[in-house]
Design a protein around this nucleic acid. Structure first.
Length: 654
RNA sequence: GCCGCUUUAGCUCAGAGGUAGAGCAACGCUUUCGUAAAGCGUGGGUCAAGGGUUCGAAUCCCUUAAGCGGCUCCA
């Protein structure tokens, strides 16, 4: 079963619908996500069937307009469906109206979907005559359909589906008739490599969505609009949490004061948990000797994600003097003839060196070294996006050095930590993935036997914790398997946040040892773990999760004091100072505006508490408190209000 | 990196060969206000950057950069 699935997935054909859809976790990145999914999925929801049929309607429409189009695959996805097509005409959103009109015409025609079981030979003949994924025979073979067909395992039955003149290689199922697709809309067009391999031709991927009724479609579009309002890139700018600046560089975020306030709260929160779990804090520099990364394996195995080495000035000068060209320099770096530094892509090598800085007794294990470590990775320009994908970001990283017998307890501790963190922020709506080695052994370091041990240990720990998870091959780090916690952003894209990784390999590479009870040297095991993952990405998800309406403990500005007129400015400033003494983040609205305007401004900035002060409050040393969530709370004594907010912050209530 | 789209004031956007516009924000003045927008006024732009076509370019063409949607890759 598993191999059937895997084969179908590699093919990326419509045949895989049966097995992959309906997980509730498939989405626009279906190609990537399916890759290692082992579990067989056999349930296709009605909506997915409908959308799969809508994909066929799209294909039919495209062919009616451009009969020469070569179709590849067209599955349903998280919020709709797509069809991949190769076509000289560049499809743009301006083409959508006429494609949609054509599609509606097909719906109106009520073409039945007919399943046509066939033989492999017959299907191949049809493909060669250009008849598959087409309305009629064509002079050119249906190249992608042919390729998909040839990738289907021998034992697999071959079925075709036909609606009107459109005949496609497809495992189904479909709705009875095109008329059942009551509402459809094309949403966007993008490009995708055939079978998701960048060596393959690029196809145009037309995305759409479909429902059985127009009302459901409208509701869906309205939900999308709502989701867009939560987009962390939009809110990040509006709430002045972070920004990007061309003068600084793409993918290099600037944390503005308000964003920094949130980050500090998150770090303090995690810091408390770490202290309780016996972690020790360390600090390490942002660059390190190239040799360090040769030892760790980052330089060879993580090359495509790194900035090139930084030479020493003296070495640089002498290279310039002898007229050493770039190619020559690259070659010397490769051969290890020149040194230099690397911007650190990961914190683990330096933490390994900290562990190695003195001998360790088995009595000291586990050693848990934690650091908010900023790392730099060269991400391809097209990958960057908001705070979720960056070239410089900070991991809430830690490395645990322990004996083999301690692995289970330590991994469990890490899993608990991640869950504690997610629970504290009400982010439990996540998926857990056990990332294992993929088939391409060149991507990984170390002995297969160590990998097997590590993979088994993680699987055991995650089962012990009673967590639901999916195993996915090819999702491991280059040094070891990992358990990842994935959540979705406002557009339904899935991102890895927390991660726990087990590593038998780096301790070998760094020759790490501890002295055991037997007075001999033993090899420790390393656990890499980051509950937030990266602070930037975590912030992005938090912004979208809360829609910018942060709980008081995280809110950049917790209280704003609104004087009714400038007669109360002095008292307002005094009250602000008093609240600041209680370590609350407070400001005074000094604008010459009406109270209503001041409230509106504070509401739009999503400030949890407004403290209104007028003549009455001034004379009674009170505040008239308005909560963003609970509305007008009436007059309160300043100290009582401070006590209440301080308590709310201390409890980190949501 | 690849494919497509986008880039005009701090923000959101209009302008589609004839020399730059609006709303909000900012600033100033008036107003001194009781739980989601007081009134009036002022300043602000090498129309992303560079090159080209043209008598003339924000507008057409090319290159580059950044952003957006995907693909591949990843925290």
């Amino acid at each position: 079963m598993g191999s059937r699935k895997a084969a179908a997935n590699r093919v990326g054909s419509p045949l895989l619908f049966l097995s992959t859809v309906g997980t509730g976790h498939t989405h626009a990145r279906i190609g990537r996500e399916e890759k290692g999914r082992k579990k067989e999925r056999s349930i296709v929801t009605e909506l997915e069937t409908l959308r799969h049929s809508a994909a066929h309607i799209l294909a039919t429409a495209l062919l009616e307009i451009w009969p020469e189009a070569q179709l590849a695959a067209g599955p349903p996805v998280e919020n709709g469906f797509y069809y991949d097509v190769s076509l000289p005409h560049r499809i743009s959103p301006e083409d959508f109206p006429r494609i949609e009109e054509q599609m509606r015409e097909i719906v109106r025609a009520g073409q039945p979907f007919v399943c046509v079981p066939t033989s492999r030979q017959e299907a191949e003949k049809l493909a060669l005559r250009g008849r598959l994924g087409a309305l009629s025979e064509r002079p050119v073979p249906s190249e992608f359909k042919l390729d998909i067909l040839r990738g289907i395992p021998e034992e697999e039955a071959i079925t075709l589906y036909q609606n009107g003149e459109f005949l496609d290689l497809c495992a189904g199922p479909h709705v009875k008739s095109t008329a059942q697709v009551g509402a459809l809309r094309l949403t966007h067009v993008a490009s995708a490599y055939y079978r998701g391999d960048e060596n393959n031709p690029q196809l145009q991927r037309v995305y759409g969505t479909a429902f059985s009724t127009e009302r459901e479609l409208e509701e869906h579009m309205a939900r999308l609009e709502e989701a867009k309002k939560r987009d962390h890139r939009k809110l990040g700018r509006e709430l002045e949490l972070f920004c990007f600046d061309d003068a600084v560089g793409a993918g290099l975020p600037l944390w503005l004061p308000r964003g920094a306030a949130i980050r500090q709260e998150l770090q303090a929160f995690l810091g408390e948990l770490l202290t309780r779990q016996g972690y020790e804090t360390v600090f390490t520099p942002h660059i390190g000797e190239l040799g360090l990364y040769r030892t760790s394996g980052h330089f060879p195995f993580y090359r495509e994600s790194q900035y090139p080495p930084l030479p020493e000035p003296a070495e640089w000068a002498s290279l310039v003097q002898e007229g050493c060209g770039c190619g020559d320099y690259a070659d010397r770096v490769e051969k290890g003839l020149v040194g230099g530094y690397l911007l650190k892509p990961m914190n683990c090598p330096m933490h390994a060196r900290i562990f190695a800085s003195r001998p360790h007794s088995y009595r000291e294990l586990p050693v848990r070294l934690a650091e908010f470590g900023t790392v730099y990775r060269w991400e391809k320009s097209g990958e960057l996006g908001g705070m979720t994908r960056l070239r410089g970001f900070t991991q809430d990283d830690a490395h645990i050095f322990c004996s083999e017998s301690q692995i289970e307890a330590e991994v469990s501790g890490c899993l608990e930590l991640v869950q504690t963190v997610l629970a504290a922020l009400n982010l439990q709506d996540c998926r857990i993935r056990l990332g294992l080695r993929g088939p391409d052994s060149a991507k990984y370091i170390g002995e297969p036997s160590l990998w097997e041990k590590a993979e088994a240990a993680l699987a055991s720990a995650i089962r012990q914790a009673g967590l639901a998870f999916s195993e996915e091959a090819g999702e491991a780090a280059f040094y070891g398997p990992k358990i990842d916690f994935l959540v979705r952003d406002c557009l339904g894209r899935e991102w890895q946040l927390g991660t726990v990784q087990l590593d038998y390999n780096l301790p070998v590479r760094f020759g790490l040892t501890f002295i055991g009870a037997d007075n001999r040297e033993h090899r420790p095991v390393m656990i890499h773990r980051a509950p937030f993952g990266s602070l930037e990405r975590f912030l992005a998800i938090l912004i979208e999760h809360f829609g910018g309406d942060f709980p008081t403990w995280l809110a950049p500005e917790q209280v704003r004091i609104l004087p009714i007129s400038d007669q109360q400015l002095d008292y307002a400033r005094e009250a602000a100072a008093a609240l600041r003494q209680r370590r609350l983040r407070v400001s005074v609205e000094e604008k010459n505006e009406t109270l209503n305007a001041k409230i509106r401004i504070a509401e739009k900035q999503k400030i949890p508490y407004m403290a209104i002060v007028g003549k009455n409050e001034q004379s009674t040393r009170n505040l008239s408190v308005r909560s963003r969530r609970r509305g007008n709370l009436g007059a309160m004594i300043l100290t009582a209000f401070a006590d209440q907010v301080v308590d709310e912050v201390a409890r980190r209530s949501l």
